[in-house]
């Protein structure tokens, strides 16, 4: 069963008189419990596709079908609600809120998603990402790997349906990258999320259930 369906996605940027088409009719489906990895050279359009799928920028043409709705036609406030309740985000940098402790980051996400602040839930996730001993720590005192694990915990605490991960291991060394990817894989399976992973690191592709290669704004067969 498909959770998320992108159909004929096109994106054109205007730069003065010049129009540049960065996505040229992309079709992609994401399935629950699966990591779909998007790879490709820089400028192939993979990050643009992820941000369009996540509702962070508009598509020029095409459909983003999720739970019976076309997100391309949904207004900003509804889209924000979808992002808060149904989506999880992991970025290249951890982007943790600097003045919140690790556990407060998770409580904040639960609040944003309109869910109850369950202490047990937070403890369970922190145990899973191996940060239970750092729950009262501020981001400034965490290592790079710990920050990214905290970011993963924040992205899944509200049990989203879709997880968007944009180069989540780009700032980590290979050992920590593997730890983070293993964690992503475990979370995807355990929570039944449809995960869209953008990466240019071929070593990380082994964690994906499906690898999709992009080139020049198109998905290669």
């Amino acid at each position: 069963m498909e959770t998320f369906q992108l159909t004929n996605i096109r994106k054109t940027f205007k730069n003065g008189e010049v129009e540049e088409e960065v996505l040229k009719g992309v079709n992609l489906s994401l399935r629950p419990g699966e990591i779909t990895a998007l790879t490709g050279a820089s400028g192939s359009g993979k990050s643009t596709l992820l941000t369009i799928a996540a509702g962070l920028q508009e598509t020029s043409e095409g459909e983003i079908r999720f739970k019976g709705k076309n997100l391309a036609d949904v207004k900003e406030e509804k889209l924000r609600k979808v992002r808060a309740e149904e989506f999880g985000f992991i970025f290249q940098s951890s982007h943790l809120v600097p003045f919140l402790t690790v556990e407060e980051q998770l409580f904040m996400m639960l609040e944003v998603a309109g869910k109850k602040k369950e202490e047990d839930e937070v403890t369970a996730i922190l145990n899973k990402v191996g940060l239970s001993h750092r729950r009262k720590a501020y981001p400034s005192s965490l290592s790079g790997g710990e920050k990214q694990r905290a970011a993963i915990a924040r992205s899944v605490i509200h049990r989203p349906s879709v997880l968007f991960a944009d180069e989540p291991t780009a700032s980590l060394d290979s050992k920590k990258s593997e730890e983070v990817m293993q964690l992503l894989e475990d979370m995807t399976k355990e929570l039944g999320m449809a995960t869209l992973l953008v990466t240019h690191e071929t070593e990380m592709l082994s964690f994906a259930d499906r690898v999709v290669h992009m080139e020049d704004g198109k998905i290669l067969a």
Binding site: R80, K81, A113
Partner: peptide, 13 residues
């Protein structure tokens, strides 16, 4: 700006 942008991305009003 960066923090606000991220908070908006994850769904903060």
């Amino acid at each position: 700006t960066g923090m606000f942008g991220i908070l908006k991305a994850i769904g903060v009003r």
